[in-house]
Simulated assay, not measured.
Amino acid sequence: MNASTTVDLNCDMGESFGAWTLGQDAELMPLLTSANVACGFHAGDPSVMRQTVRRALAAGVAIGAHPGLPDLVGFGRRNMDISAEEAFDMTVYQLGALAAVVRAEGGQLHHLKPHGALYNMAATNAALAEAIAEALYKVQPELMLYGLAGSELTKAGEKIGLRTAHEVFADRTYQPNGTLTPRRQPDALITSSEVAIAQVLRMVQGGWVRTQQGTEVAIRADTVCLHGDGAHALEFARQLRTALAGAGVVVQIPGPAPATPSPSGR
């Protein structure tokens, strides 16, 4: 079992676009320790990226690039038949865009976490996983790579020499092979806060998760993903923080924290 007394809380942020607003970024940010900022392919735009980075820096939250598939209409959650070379190029392009925004605001990037379908594809496809890991390694090898616990992505990161964070999900059900239940299937999402919190505590403190089929699978929980686009996301985040504190689990940024930014002068 991979039990832990510390854990990171991350959330996908900056997923508004133009005139459309998604999520409760301003309210959720203080409850997190790391934020995955959309880089414009599946969501986000230059102004939203900058605003989100500013919020994270003000709250002392670690900033991660959140590259996705080029699919605004499908929010990056639809599989695409891409090659490993395309996955590499997409990752480099989006990482570079957010890195520039973070640097302009006087901050430092902390990690990279793929989004949606790209994330799930890389969890089981070794070639895609290796391409994403290589992209990060060649651009900013000091950053952490967030990936599904025990997946091809975390294996690829560790193999190439990246620091990796094994990620678990509070509101998703699991399959016996450790993958997430596809969203299109029944019971893919956990809608009860009590059930979701119990699952998180089992994964963090016990090092295991109960699958949709009722079996128990060992799991490593370095970071827990909270989805910020749910109707009760803010209340759930507060409840989870309270439950973790009550269980003696310290919520903190994984690995070395980014340096505190100097004033931008604007």
Rank of each mutant, 00 (worst) to 15 (best):
Y146H: 12
Y93M: 06
V61G: 10
S83T: 15
A3M: 08
I190S: 04
M203Q: 14
G14Y: 08
H66R: 12
V53D: 00
P141A: 15
A59L: 03
M1K: 05
Y137H: 14
W20S: 00
Q239F: 04
D229N: 11
D229A: 10
T21V: 14
T242G: 03
T211E: 11
S4C: 12
R54C: 10
T260Q: 14
E152L: 09
E85G: 01
F17D: 01
Q213Y: 10
G150F: 10
R55C: 06
H66E: 04
V224I: 15
P256W: 10
R202M: 06
R210I: 11
A259L: 14
L244H: 05
A19N: 09
C11P: 04
G230C: 05
T215P: 03
G207D: 09
M49S: 08
S262F: 06
L162R: 00
P182C: 02
V217Q: 08
P141V: 04
Q239N: 13
Q140V: 08
Y137L: 11
H110G: 13
A3I: 04
A247G: 07
L57R: 01
Q185S: 08
L9R: 05
G106L: 13
H166L: 11
A196H: 01
V53P: 06
A84K: 01
L98R: 08
R210F: 09
W208Y: 15
L72D: 03
G157Q: 05
G64T: 05
G207K: 02
V209I: 14
A87P: 06
P261K: 05
L145Y: 04
L201H: 04
C225V: 05
Y93I: 00
V53C: 13
G68K: 12
V73D: 13
T164W: 00
Y93G: 02
I82N: 00
A198P: 02
Q239E: 15
R210T: 15
A117L: 05
G74L: 12
V249G: 02
V251G: 08
A59S: 09
P46L: 12
F169Q: 01
V224W: 03
A87Y: 02
Q205A: 12
P30L: 11
R238K: 14
N125C: 09
L153W: 01
K113D: 11
G161N: 12
G74Y: 12
S192R: 07
A59W: 02
Q252T: 15
W208M: 09
G161D: 13
T215K: 06
N2A: 13
Q94M: 07
V204M: 09
E158I: 14
G246E: 14
S16P: 11
Y119M: 04
V92L: 07
A233S: 15
A56E: 00
A56T: 03
V101I: 14
I132A: 08
A165M: 04
N125R: 15
F41M: 07
A259G: 09
A62N: 01
T191M: 14
W208R: 01
E194Y: 05
L95S: 11
L57A: 11
A198T: 09
Q108E: 15
V200E: 04
V168Y: 01
A99I: 02
L98G: 05
A84V: 02
D25C: 12
Y174G: 00
